[in-house]
Design a protein around this nucleic acid. Structure first.
Lengths: 245, 245
DNA sequence: GTATGATTAAAACGATTGTTTGAAACCAGA
DNA sequence: TCTGGTTTCAAACAATCGTTTTAATCATAC
């Protein structure tokens, strides 16, 4: 049961079929809204097969989650390592760091054929999901990668408090998550929307960079004359840069 | 049953007690994760009382939702109307519009005594909740207010496509929602975080304004020479303004 | 006080939940 | 072909789900 030794039979077919269906259904109906019978029924396997292969429903959810998030984490860590190796010593540009962090997520979200898109919706949903074991699991899986990127951004942005970097990273993750998992709701709520998936990435990266580059707020800013001047200047000519004649 | 005539007895005590408890439990465990027995048990009322007052579980959820969102919508509409009345004819500054939209949400989220904070977490959670009746309900409640603000931003930002405005409004809502409902997860995942609730609002508004003011991406930008120049300039000096010496 | 309508109470309804059981089926190696 | 272990299967387990039913209790108007 816990030896996990796959002998090479078609066991993995059943296992992966369950995982694939579970991923879709958990995304669509949530953890509590998805029953084991829905999963096994739609996967065309016996009900007991799910418990046989994964033990419990929570374990099945974790298996669904882990399969993808490990891939995502690897891609993110690799992207950061590549950046740091390429420009040795020289401080990284924040925009490159953001691309390293959110690029893999957007790439996975763009993959609608192999379930990547489905999983990214599940990931966004899970982040605000209050179920205790889900939160703990999320935190454990994410902590390491997030701290690495927070460190990288801290080195790339000298003078910006690490707490501010963490907050903005958090804000950005929220924007990305909603952009991926909340599209249906947005399309429902609103009249005219250009939802070309190919444009989502550039749109989002532009927004994120703008947020990251925003002037620090008054009470938190380091008191250098230059920053204060910039802030008031920014308040004067409000709006996206594209509107400036 | 549908006359809704409150005769003045302590009926409303039972009703509101159910609503208050349901709000907390729906936020904490989700719709499917919360049972009628959990709600009535914790509220100290009989199980049948919930069905008596609200009919069905879905109707109870909608009642929980509607009670707060009407207040939020009223505040948002009033804020926009006040802005437009104050500066008659003159185009509004986007930053003021953002404050009108997100100010009431942040104010409600800051209210931890009357359940406002709980509800804002529920609202953020519900946005990505895939349950069909929930999505439809969200869309109906939100559509009007979102379209009003999209119109206001469109007038305030001539030359920016309405689709781009809607996307950025969406991104911003994601950031705000995560900031409010995902704090616990962030605190878990990360080492040092200054989570003074009073600073959240300014932090967030600074980030949102930065995102809104971000240069439009290449493929979407209006082809005026000025904007193109600005964009490359922005790419050159990367990072928050506070880091510029 | 009695009648009337609204509210609460206890109990039960059928349906569905996650999980377990024990036997059948399968597949490799000897 | 027999053997040992893995996987599948139908069936059942106790528990919980949302909802309904029926009677008791309450406050109020006549």
């Amino acid at each position: 049961m816990d030896t996990q030794s796959q002998t090479g039979t078609d066991t993995r077919d059943t296992r992966e079929r369950i995982l694939d269906v579970a991923e879709v259904l958990f995304t669509e109906h949530g953890f509590d809204g998805t029953s084991m019978r829905m999963i096994t029924g739609q996967a065309g396997v016996n009900l007991a097969a799910a418990n046989y292969h994964f033990g419990t429903k929570e374990a099945l959810f974790q298996a669904v989650f882990q399969r993808r998030i490990e891939q995502l984490n690897r891609a993110r860590v690799a992207a950061l390592a590549a950046l740091e190796a390429e420009a040795n010593g020289v401080p990284l540009k924040p925009s490159r760091i953001l691309e390293g962090f959110f690029g893999p997520a957007l790439a996975m979200a763009a993959d609608t054929e192999h379930g990547g898109h489905t999983f990214m919706r599940l990931l966004g949903r899970t982040y605000t999901e209050p179920t205790q074991f889900v939160r703990r699991f999320m935190a454990e899986e994410y902590a390491d990668v997030m701290n690495r990127y927070a460190d990288a951004l801290y080195k790339a942005l000298p003078g910006v408090p690490v707490s501010e970097i963490l907050w903005r990273l958090h804000f950005m993750m929220g924007a990305v998550s909603y952009a991926i998992s909340g599209i249906d709701a947005l399309k429902l709520a609103v009249r005219e929307l250009d939802d070309d998936p190919a444009k989502l990435g550039p749109r989002l990266m532009a927004f994120l960079l703008g947020g990251l580059r925003a002037p620090l707020v008054e009470s938190l800013r380091l008191h250098t004359p230059a920053t204060a001047a910039r802030s008031e200047d920014a308040d004067a000519n409000d709006g996206p840069d594209a509107t400036h004649a």
